[in-house]
Design a protein around this nucleic acid. Structure first.
Lengths: 338, 338
DNA sequence: CTGAAAGCGCTAACAA
DNA sequence: TTGTTAGCGCTTTCAG
């Protein structure tokens, strides 16, 4: 790469000081009362020499990078692409850039990424925490590093966060299955300590109970993340083989639903005839299924947007404390026999 | 945020020079011949004071940020998530970080993003160029900014790139439809000036010709990116209404295929019975379709990996010139009546 | 084996 | 209205 042109090059070219050039390049000509003519000359020279301010140098001086670090759980999730897009857009609106990494649900990678981002002096972090990442979160708190959790959170940690009410969402979904005539409702969820997924579990159970339905242990499928395909396949087989067999399945996440539907397809189970299906969170893939899938929907745009605004408030004034809980939507399809 | 601890803090704490601390923190104790004891003391103090090297300062000094800028066309594409993941992994292996932005197929955004990334002193760029971005590319060339194009490229521009042979891929796909007994093969593609998509067009035409099939203008559907849903819907209707109607459809991209299949579902057209379907590039969504979709597949992992290695070679020695053209795979499903 | 010091490109307080 | 200059945190040369 050629030697880059710096402030002092254009100062020298024009025989003015670097301060003057700096003022003009930062559009402070007004407040600093720079002569209109000088300003013009400087702009012209900057354009001619193709001057590009070195953000690195600027950051070192101002101790602000205008950068947000984002750690997502898995780049392949629909939640991730949606929220990343929203975060990027909102960040851009505020003149911030996003540096982004995926933990792939690994606590080790989560930790490493946080380190890299902090060393790069990001102004703050937006995090989708993974299982067992409480320590890392506490570390950030202890060291006053501004951050906002999204999607997931830990009940015991008083951190800034933007998420939905997972209990309520799961309750609504389950209640919808009951309302559409189902009694033997299977529930497919990850086997995890993540609080937001446990909340979905709680919502499912409570809705059953409130409708006078005895929960059947055989209808609850715990899926190991590492054995996703296998466990979903076995789970679907299992709930269909019970007596009485499941009349419906509630998938706790879109990924689980996709794998479930794949198997339902393969097993030639009719939806909604033989089996009602409901998913929490949606996927574009649903549109190719033989029947519109009824599902809950997170307000992904809002989550991303609020995460950024909260974080920037936090950066500006580190006394902010916000726990934002949003409502989720519910999209009626035909997969529950509505 | 609390005041961070810097090199000189730990130097002062120990009564040694910053140089010594710097050597140890960069694991240069051997080559610089630092006393083992001093090294130990320094490491201990660094840990105790929770020292974190300021990458910004380091970058300013070394003129290397160890950062790759990545501009993708749309974060929602499966190609994007796959290639981003591969790029991130390979970058990490080489101790590089990825800063990432999405142009959303807009040339303006592409330009702005390139600017931001360059100002942040990324060591190099990996780009999925958008329509009409030739100027930007030429600018980068003129200013010796290291970059690699992926997925898309411009035949007239002699730039480093990693992509597939789109002509050949489309030829193979079309030939497969012929081989499986189809003659009235519709082709759905974007109306675009992007070379790689035109190449798919050329492959389609040539395959028809080589098989003695007269191309029918009515079977070629040009989709406007801004009117994706509408144009695909109308297109499917149109090719089914022709006389003779289409007996198969070849979708030039996964997105087009998804929208096409959605309509095929809605119109209750039987695949493969009434209509053969073939897609170039795949989507997880295909798995929920009533029948396994035959499709071409780009070697996404390889593209990402090779893009990074090429870029890093380029950064180390700007004389590299590489135009890497990869073969694409072909996945047989059942959607062509195989 | 260790320390002093210059300087990366920029900002901003202060002086003129 | 403009110029001078210290210094952000780090690397690295040179001297001791």
């Amino acid at each position: 790469m050629k030697r880059k042109v710096a402030l002092k090059d254009i100062a020298k070219e024009l025989g003015v000081s670097t301060a003057l050039v700096s003022y003009v390049m930062n559009n402070q000509e007004e407040e600093k009362g720079v002569n209109k003519e000088s300003a013009l000359k400087i702009r012209e020279a900057a354009a001619r020499l193709n001057y590009r301010p070195n953000q690195i140098a600027k950051s070192l001086k101002t101790n602000k990078t205008h950068t947000i670090g984002l750690i997502v759980a898995d780049i392949a999730y629909r939640f991730t692409t949606g929220v990343t897009r929203a975060i990027e857009a909102e960040a851009k609106k505020n003149n911030y850039t996003v540096i982004f990494g995926s933990s792939d649900e690994s606590n080790k990678k989560f930790h490493e990424l946080a380190n890299v981002l902090i060393n790069r002096q990001v102004d703050g972090l937006i995090l989708v925490p993974v299982e067992n990442s409480e320590q890392e979160i506490e570390y950030l708190q202890k060291h006053d590093i501004p951050f906002v959790l999204i999607d997931r959170y830990f009940p015991g940690l008083d951190a800034n966060m933007v998420a939905i009410d997972n209990y309520k969402a799961a309750y609504q979904c389950t209640a919808h299955l009951v309302k559409t005539g189902h009694r033997n409702i299977a529930f497919v969820n990850y086997k995890t300590t993540l609080f937001h997924l446990q909340e979905r579990n709680r919502g499912y159970r409570q809705a059953l109970q409130d409708n006078g339905i005895e929960p059947q242990p055989g209808l609850v499928i715990d899926v190991r993340e590492k054995h996703l395909e296998e466990d979903v396949r076995k789970g679907i087989k299992q709930v269909m083989a019970l007596n009485p067999a499941a009349d419906s399945v509630f998938f706790a996440t879109d990924i689980l639903a996709i794998h479930g539907l794949k198997n339902i397809n393969a097993m030639k189970i009719k939806v909604p005839g033989e089996l009602g299906v409901l998913s929490f969170d949606e996927s574009e893939a649903f549109e190719l299924f033989s029947c519109p899938v009824t599902h809950g929907r997170q307000p992904i745009e809002d989550i991303g947007k609020l995460a950024v605004t909260t974080l920037l408030d936090l950066v500006a004034n580190n006394k902010v404390k916000r726990r934002i809980v949003l409502e989720s939507d519910f999209i009626k399809g035909k997969s529950c026999g509505e």
